[in-house]
């Protein structure tokens, strides 16, 4: 059992997972987003290879309307 913080909310997961799996778990649209793991941006191509440790903090940003 590992705990992963996703956009400020802590969620427990039964099996280890990578970023891509985490995004699927939270039903995130994959277009137009950026992922930050423990303060560092993880490029899209690394999502599938980046396994999340216990207590990992993941934040997802997306493009929104703005001037």
């Amino acid at each position: 059992m590992i705990n992963i913080e996703f956009n400020g909310q802590i969620q427990s997961h039964g099996t280890p997972l990578n970023i891509e799996q985490l995004l699927a778990f939270h039903q995130q649209a994959l277009e137009g987003i950026a992922v930050v793991l423990n303060g560092n941006i993880v490029t899209r191509s690394e999502w599938a290879n980046t396994l999340l440790n216990d207590h990992a903090k993941v934040r997802v940003f997306r493009a929104i309307a703005g001037g």
Partner: peptide
């Protein structure tokens, strides 16, 4: 056209303006 970046809130589902 300009766009902004925002952290996604777990609940709130933003309209997709990008597509």
């Amino acid at each position: 056209v300009t766009m902004a970046m925002k952290r996604v809130d777990a609940q709130d589902q933003q309209d997709d303006i990008l597509a």
